[in-house]
Design a protein around this nucleic acid. Structure first.
Length: 559
RNA sequence: GCACCCGUAGCUCAGCGGAUUAGAGCACUAGUCUUCGGAACUAGGUGUCACAGGUUCGAAUCCUGUCGGGUGUACCA
């Protein structure tokens, strides 16, 4: 259809002397036609003519390979035969169908899931992982070279809190677990709050001391930190493996402390940063319309988030030569990233920086109102959510023999897919009954559709590649139109990383296939028709598999 | 206070820089087919697109204001 678009642009240029963008849209079900084009209405004012007349003039110039019709207020509706659509798909087909090279030669960094050390992996890092992974997949499909980096939360005040809490606990470095560390953190937070209310600050001071000791390279602080890190990393890796997520790098905040501090000095000297009387350093951002300056160094000289992010940004831009960096981090940090990006601009850094933000995971609370997900203890552990998901899958699929690996794929597929049902800006209402449902828009529904197609292909493997004769592909039109949409969809989400559009597409394709089977028998059809239909199923299975792969949703062997 | 996000069917949500009669899923009801894998398909909607203005031949979509909910607003990340 691209050549037809070009043709229309040429005709408009010839007839009316203007350049207009030409897009094709779908046509409502009740109306005749497969694609519609609204150029005539866009031109109406400039040309001083009625849209319907313009449409008729354009149609008169169009080549005769398709049927055209003026519709409604001035749409040009185009009807294409199934046969022509099948030829278009065959012509566009390749091993990389759907991919494009718009990002070729450029480097992007996708930062996710940015887990915290010394805390159990909570559902708080679920969305960063799924969204960051999808961002990486989508960028790669658009030709980018993507570097993935887990920006570990391994520096800053929390370490001081754990070190202080650990020394007060009865745990030893040999037997402490990541769950103990999690509990120590929660207890310390509570104790520090009580302390603050009482007007004291012994614990807070101790935490700050540990932090400074670590930054100064104190032996005991380093030992604690190293041990906590080892326990944490093993835990993070095991959970990520279950989710089938991984990153190429794990350069945590601590890795960038020195680099960040050195840069703070540099920009202080250049006058871009300012030192306050209390010793803290800020980056004024008034010229970018942000009246809250960014704190670059604490008054005691310690680094904070902004310090390490400055170092990290510098590293990615200058060592990795990144052209684009996407941060998969929740909406709560929107303002922080606005500051960070304004700071980058102030420093003259040109790369495209994007905060891929998203809403919280909610649940229905005891009062019936929607609230942020939590357990009685506070955070919900991702492992617990995965255990529950696998249990549900085993119960729902009791009739089928599923391998452990397939159970894992369906469980994580359901959870991941649910992250992409709505626009990522929206919060997710976590409703297990719905997420693991086998009907409706769910991960398992899409996975099942894909498994079904693959099984049909296996059973009819003998007929693959046989001659179609002059089969008309009339019954296949809806599916063909859908499959032909895929490349534009992938290209269309490259900028805004709206992965939910991929999820919606996968669901629609799966639905379209279910409709297709109703009126188009395959195994019982005569040879040429059977071959043609298998050709279509093969294409659909590939596209659905690719779409789900962009979301990180794996396809099980059996369901 | 200010900034950002959200408000579309009973519920969860689509609706991509305006366009043909505003759509899905869930739930509910009634059907279909000798089931290639029925976890299917088909049919069934009186929705103040939060409200009020504005721009336009045309607005759920763009602009302004109001109301409601959420988040953020320098020594946490």
């Amino acid at each position: 259809m691209d050549s037809l678009k070009t043709k229309i642009i040429e005709i408009v240029k010839k007839l009316y002397g203007v350049d207009v963008p030409v897009e094709f849209a779908a046509v409502p079900a009740e109306i005749k036609g497969d694609y519609s084009c609204n150029v005539a209405m866009r031109l109406a004012k400039a040309a001083g003519k009625a849209p319907r007349d313009i449409a008729a003039e354009i149609i008169a110039e169009l080549p005769g390979e398709y049927a055209y019709e003026v519709a409604g207020p001035g749409f040009i509706n185009i009807s294409v035969s199934g046969k022509a659509l099948s030829e278009q798909l065959e012509a566009a087909w390749s091993e990389d169908y759907g991919n494009n090279q718009s990002g070729a030669g450029k480097v992007a960094v996708s930062e996710f899931p940015s887990t915290n050390m010394a805390k159990p992996y909570s559902v708080g890092h679920l969305r960063p992982g799924t969204q960051g992974w999808a961002a990486k997949q989508i960028l790669e499909a658009n030709g980018w070279k993507v570097i993935t980096d887990n920006h570990l939360g391994d520096a800053g005040t929390p370490f001081g809190i754990w070190a202080t809490g650990f020394k007060r606990s009865d745990k030893t470095l040999d037997d402490i677990t990541v769950y103990d560390l999690g509990e120590i953190y929660i207890k310390m937070k509570a104790d520090m709050k009580a302390e603050e209310a009482a007007g004291e600050h012994a614990l807070a001071d101790s935490a700050q001391d540990w932090l400074l000791k670590l930054e100064a390279g104190d032996a005991e602080a380093v030992e604690l930190s190293t041990r906590f890190n080892k326990i944490s990393l093993d835990h993070i890796h095991s959970v990520m493996k279950r989710m089938n997520l991984s990153t190429e790098y794990e350069l945590g905040e601590s890795y960038f402390v020195e680099r960040g501090k050195a840069l703070v000095e540099k920009y202080l000297a250049e006058g871009k940063f300012v030192k306050n009387d209390d010793g803290s350093v800020i980056c004024p951002l008034d010229e970018y319309g942000i009246d809250v300056p960014m704190l670059m160094l604490k008054s005691n000289g310690a680094a904070l988030y902004a310090t390490t992010d400055l170092g990290c940004l510098d590293y990615r831009l200058h060592e990795w030569k990144a052209d684009r960096i996407v941060y998969a981090v929740g909406a709560e940090q929107k303002f922080y990233f606005e500051q960070l990006f304004a700071m980058a601009k102030k420093l003259g850094w040109e790369a495209e920086l994007q905060h891929v933000w998203f809403g919280t995971i909610d649940q229905v609370g005891p009062d019936g109102k929607r609230e942020k997900m939590s357990s009685r203890k506070g955070v919900v552990l991702l492992e617990a959510m995965l255990d529950d998901a696998e249990k549900r899958v085993r119960e729902n699929f009791a009739s089928e023999e599923l391998s452990d690996e397939d159970v894992r794929k369906v469980a994580t597929g359901a959870i991941k897919y649910s992250d992409f049902i709505a626009d990522r800006k929206m919060g997710i209402l976590y409703d297990p009954e719905k997420i693991f449902a086998l009907t409706g828009q769910s991960g398992p529904f899409c996975q099942y559709a894909c498994v079904r197609m693959r099984r049909i292909l296996e059973k009819n493997a003998d007929f693959a590649g046989a001659d179609f004769g002059d089969y008309d592909f009339a019954a296949e039109k809806a599916v063909l139109l859908k499959l032909l949409d895929f490349p534009a969809l992938v290209a269309g989400v490259a900028d805004n990383l709206e992965a939910h559009r991929i999820a919606g597409y996968c669901f629609e394709l799966a639905q379209e296939m279910n409709r297709y089977y109703e009126n188009a028998p395959i195994s019982s059809a005569e040879d040429s028709i059977r071959a043609a239909r298998l050709w279509l199923v093969e294409k659909a299975a590939f596209v659905l598999g690719r779409g789900l792969d962009l979301l990180g949703v794996e396809i099980p062997e059996k369901m």
